[in-house]
Design a binder for these strands. Structure first.
Lengths: 222, 222
DNA sequence: TCACATCATGACCGGCCGGTCATATCCCGT
DNA sequence: ACGGGATATGACCGGCCGGTCATGATGTGA
C-alpha cells in the first residue's frame, strides 16, 4: 500500500536526523578530526555500517550536512532581523544592536556547534583541495549576501557611509565571529557566571562599528 | 679547545634553523595535519631520525617553535609602530593607518605561514586538551597586551574613546586578521593582480574602526 | 508459511605516519 | 692511527580509523 512506502520514508528521515544529531554532539565534543564514525554511530544507537547506508559520503558528508544547516540558520536570522516588520520606523542603531544581540544569544546557546563551525570552516577555507575551499567560500558568500541587501538599503537611505557593501558585510560578520570566539574562550577559564552578557558585548560592538573609536570625528575641516 | 665547543654549538643552531625553515615551508604547503615529518626532514636534507635529535617533541615542537616566532614578530611590529619616534606629534589617525598597513604588508608577503597560523591557532584554541588551549591563549594575550599599552595611552590623551582596552585590542586585531584572511582567500580565485592593495584595505579598516559606519555620529544633543 | 527484498551489523582490511632504536658514520683528542 | 663519544639514519613498529562487505536479521506481500 502506498502508505507503507511513505511510512518507510518517514522512518528513514527520522534515522538520518538522529544520526545528524549524534554527529553534531560528537563532533562538537571531540572535534571533527578526533571524532570517529564509530562513536557517532553508537551515540545514535546504530552500528557503524548503518551510518554508511544513510550517508554515502561517510564522515565528511555528515560534516557538510551540519555546516549547511548552520549557515542556513545564519541566513534566516539575518533576513528576519532586517525584515520590514523588524526595521519599520526604528533607527538603524537600534535595529543593528538588536541584530547583533540576537546573533550572540543564538550562537552562545549552541556554543559547541558554533566552535565546530569556526574550527572546521577555517580548515576548509585554507584547504589545499580547491573543491573544499570553494564549498566554504560558497557558504560564506551566502551569508554575506544576505547581509548585503539590508546594508545597501541603509546606504541608499543615507543612514550609513557609502562603502563597498560586501566589504562592510564581511567586516561586521567578522567582528561578530571574533567576539563570539572570544566569549567562547574566556567562558572556558572563567566560570560562565562572570562573562559579559550578550547584551553588553553587543553594545560594545555597536559603538565600535557604528561610531568608531575616535573621540571627535571632526565634522570636516577647521 | 674551547673554540671547538662553540663551533659545534653554532653548527647545531644552524641545523635547527634549517629544519625550522623546512618545517615552515612544508606546513605552509600541506597544512600541519597533512605534512609528514619525513618530508620536513628531507626538505632540510636530513633523515627523519635526525629531526628528533633536534626537536625532542617531534612534529608538535616544530609547530610551536614556528608559532612562537610568528607571535614574536607581531609583538615587535606593534611595539615599533607605536614607539615614541613613530608617533611623535603625528595624529592618531595617521599612526593607526600606518600600523595597519605595515601589518598587512608584513603578513601578505608571508601569506602561507600566516594562513598556517590562522588554521592551527584556531585548532589549538578550541582544542579539548586544556594544555594546548592555554598555550594559545597565552600567545594571543602577549599580542593583545602589546597593543593595550598604546591604546591606554591614546585613551588617556583623549584621542580615542575610553573603552576597555583589551576588548578594543581584540577587536582591532580581529579585524586585521579577518581582512587578511579575506585577502588570502580572494587572492586564490582572482589573480593576485586585481586584489585590493594593502593600502586600500588598510584605509577601509581605518575608516570603519576609527570613524564608524554611521554617517553623522551627531556630536551629541543640539 | 515461504521467498524475496531490504536493511543492520561489526569484523576486517589497508593505508598512513609519528616516533624509536640498532647500526653506521663521523670527528675528535691523544 | 686508534678508541670512543657524538651524531645521522631509515627500517620498522604500533596504533588508529575510515570505509567495505559477507552475513544474518527483519519484515513484507502473496
Amino acid at each position: 500500500m502506498e502508505n507503507t512506502l511513505s511510512r518507510r520514508e518517514r522512518e528513514r528521515q527520522r534515522r538520518r536526523q538522529s544520526m545528524l544529531e549524534a554527529a553534531r554532539a560528537v563532533f562538537a565534543e571531540k572535534g571533527y578530526g578526533n571524532a570517529t564514525v564509530e562513536e557517532v554511530a553508537h551515540r545514535a544507537e546504530f552500528g557503524k555500517g548503518t551510518v554508511y547506508n544513510y550517508f554515502e559520503g561517510g564522515k565528511e558528508e555528515l560534516l557538510y550536512a551540519i555546516l549547511d544547516e548552520l549557515h542556513d540558520d545564519l541566513c534566516t536570522l539575518i533576513d528576519s532581523a532586517f525584515s520590514p516588520e523588524a526595521t519599520e520606523g526604528r533607527p538603524f542603531r537600534d535595529v543593528f544592536l538588536n541584530f547583533i544581540e540576537t546573533l550572540f544569544i543564538n550562537f552562545l546557546e549552541r556554543r559547541d556547534v558554533f566552535a565546530l563551525m569556526m574550527k572546521e570552516a577555517q580548515q576548509l577555507i585554507f584547504s589545499d583541495d580547491d573543491e573544499k575551499a570553494a564549498y566554504f567560500v560558497r557558504q560564506s558568500n551566502r551569508v554575506v549576501n544576505a547581509l548585503v541587501g539590508p546594508l545597501q538599503k541603509a546606504m541608499d537611505e543615507g543612514k550609513i557611509k557609502p562603502l563597498p557593501p560586501e566589504a562592510v558585510a564581511h567586516t561586521i560578520l567578522g567582528n561578530v565571529k571574533g567576539m563570539l570566539m572570544h566569549l567562547c574562550v574566556i567562558s572556558r577559564s572563567a566560570g560562565p557566571a562572570d562573562l559579559p552578557s550578550a547584551h553588553k558585548s553587543a553594545e560594545f560592538l555597536n559603538v565600535v562599528l557604528l561610531d568608531g573609536l575616535l573621540v571627535h570625528p571632526e565634522p570636516k575641516s577647521r
